[in-house]
């Protein structure tokens, strides 16, 4: 594996004691797997960020969506699949457990929680990005939509 990590347990699948099939503690290679998936942006792992808005905006896992701290009103798209939950290191176990239950409802499996939260992602060289770079705002067209298909009509910079 590319990312050899010093700690024995980095990624916990939050399932011990709450009776989810396939639960248990994930291995080191799964941490490497998560970083790899995020770097390649394969879409295999959906990443949600529970931290406050300012923390999210100042830098998160690339592609992570901000869903706020409360699982109560959360609705997933039903497409399920793997999900990685980004939280503060001191988020209570109760809240994480409530999130776990909510995510199961929408078909997510496996569900990854990072022991130590976002900080441990950073400590282990997981990529971090400000979501501002990749977000778009609907309905705002400060620019003109081109009327033709090749309006620039500028010859290429590179000729063979």
């Amino acid at each position: 594996m590319k990312y050899a990590l010093p700690l024995a347990v980095m990624v916990m699948m939050f399932s011990a004691g709450i009776g989810v099939a396939g639960g248990g503690v994930a291995t080191l290679s799964e941490f490497g797997f998560l970083i790899e998936q995020v770097k390649k942006n394969t879409g295999e792992v959906y990443v949600i960020d529970l931290r406050d808005r300012a923390a999210y905006l100042s830098g998160t896992v690339p592609g992570a969506v901000h869903v706020g701290p409360s699982p109560d009103g959360y609705i997933g798209d039903g497409r399920g699949g793997a999900v990685l939950v980004i939280a503060d290191g001191d988020t209570s176990a109760d809240i994480l457990e409530a999130w776990h239950d909510r995510l199961v409802t929408f078909g997510h499996d496996p569900i990854y929680f990072l022991e130590g939260g976002f900080a441990s992602w950073v400590n282990h060289d997981g990529p971090v990005k400000s979501p501002v770079d990749t977000s778009a705002v609907p309905g705002k067209f400060p620019f003109i939509i081109p009327r033709g298909l090749c309006e620039m009509n500028t010859p290429a910079k590179v000729y063979p």
Binding site: N41, P62, S135, A136, V137, P138, F143, I144, M152
Partner: peptide
């Protein structure tokens, strides 16, 4: 996609490879 301003300047607003775009 591409957009242009009235001064003729172009902006690249395409979806880049290996990057997730987010809209709220």
């Amino acid at each position: 996609g591409w957009e242009y301003a009235s001064d003729g300047g172009w902006t690249d607003k395409t979806l880049k490879p290996n990057r997730t775009a987010i809209v709220e």
